[in-house]
Amino acid sequence: MIDHDEAGAVRPLTLAWVGRYLKASERIVKTEVLHGGITAEMRRLTVGTQDGNIRDLVLRTFVDPYFVEHAENLLNREAGSLALLAGTGVPVPGPVAVDPTASHCEYPSLLMTHLPGRTVLDDEGLETRIPLLARQLVTIHAVRPSERPQEYKAWTTADAVVPPDGADAAAWAAAIDVIRKPAPPYDGRFLHRDFHPGNVLFDVSPPCTTGPRITGVVDWVQTSWGPADLDVAHCSTNLAMLHGPAWGLRFADAYEEAGGVLASTASERLYWLLLDALAFAGGVALVVRPWQQAGRMELTTRAVEERLDAYVAALLDALG
């Protein structure tokens, strides 16, 4: 019998599909929901053998109609990225199997190995973690694939931005004018495209005398080719909303201190930073939910919208 709660149960066809990739002596002994994701169902599958050894796998399943429609591209992109990054300085899961069109499973699915560590979203220790995040992102951007992934896609446009209620109208109008301009020229880099603390695993166990270390970077479905500034901007916006605007402003400096190269002019940097920040307008509730599941209950939608508003104004003050 598999040990799981109802939410963690794997659907029958998917369970049979996973079984094809287990050894003859192995069976799934436990399933568990992994919280923190926005776009997919995530489950940890504990696999046991007759001699008592266990190992864990992770199952990603797209069930939302929008992501089911786009699953073939997204899951093939992630599986390809995981294979590409094996053996690099980027700790990623190993791809085990992918069913991007639900030919075997109830829904499009990706099976991969499980990494140790956990996400850390607390304010405590952030000053130590930011340089680690920056160095890891520099390593990602140093990857030179033989075939480039698809070009990045902007997640908003000037005409689509609706400022949060109570936002600084003048600041948001100025910010929207910035992203209305054509995108600056850039040197392309291999992008994670969704790099932020919620997609990075840390070992922060007490016996670790050298401090926290990154044990994994996950969620590679948005891998793209584009400016390093865009990945830096996405992590910066998340830091601003999670921990306060000042932390978002600090991440670009940490990235450069780690050896990363960003756009050469303040106006170019501002464009990419605002292109990401304004993409969260109207969608803050989506990121708040996993943060609250992780214990940050004080991060209400309204509180995070206020931080986003303050961050947009701070970017214009610093770089405008």
Rank of each mutant, 00 (worst) to 15 (best):
R289V: 10
R180L: 06
S109C: 04
S236C: 09
I54L: 08
C208G: 09
D177A: 15
P245Q: 07
A86V: 05
T128K: 14
G259M: 14
P163Y: 10
L191Q: 07
L278Y: 05
V178L: 11
A246T: 12
D51I: 04
A40G: 01
W247T: 03
T39C: 05
Q150T: 01
A86L: 07
L45Y: 04
N73S: 12
I140F: 04
D219K: 05
L308R: 11
A97E: 15
G117T: 10
D56E: 14
D177Q: 14
L262T: 11
A7E: 15
D5C: 09
L13I: 07
A233P: 02
P245A: 06
H114Q: 06
T113L: 03
I130S: 09
V261I: 13
L249M: 10
V138H: 13
L278H: 09
I140R: 07
F280W: 15
G166S: 10
D177Y: 08
I214M: 02
P207I: 01
H114K: 13
K153L: 13
L57T: 06
T139G: 11
A24K: 08
V218F: 03
A303N: 12
S109N: 03
P12Q: 02
P184R: 06
R118M: 14
D229E: 07
Y255Q: 11
G87N: 12
L278W: 05
R77D: 08
Y186D: 00
A83C: 12
R11Y: 06
D64R: 14
L132G: 04
W155T: 09
I176A: 07
P206E: 01
Y107R: 13
D165S: 13
A254P: 00
A313M: 09
T61C: 11
L34P: 00
V232G: 06
V120R: 11
P212I: 10
P212G: 02
L201N: 02
N199K: 02
R43H: 07
A40L: 01
H192P: 01
D219Y: 03
S81D: 08
V18H: 02
G188R: 13
R129H: 02
R213C: 11
V312R: 04
V120P: 03
S81F: 06
D253Q: 05
D122Q: 15
W247N: 07
V18M: 02
W172A: 08
L132M: 12
P93K: 00
A169W: 05
F62E: 05
V200N: 00
E151A: 06
A266Q: 04
S81R: 07
L262E: 14
A7P: 04
S264H: 12
L57W: 10
D99R: 04
A252H: 11
L22K: 01
L230V: 04
P206D: 13
L34H: 00
P245M: 07
V161D: 04
R118A: 15
D5H: 11
I140Q: 11
A24S: 11
T119H: 01
E32T: 14
D194W: 05
A169E: 14
R302K: 15
N238F: 07
V200F: 01
G166H: 09
G125H: 09
W220F: 07
W247P: 00
D3G: 12
L137C: 06
L274K: 00
M1R: 13
E151C: 00
H196Y: 01
L133H: 08
P163I: 08
T128N: 10
A310S: 13
F280K: 12
L132W: 03
I179R: 01
E257C: 06
W172Y: 15
N238L: 11
I140Y: 02
D56Y: 09
L201M: 09
G80A: 05
E72W: 05
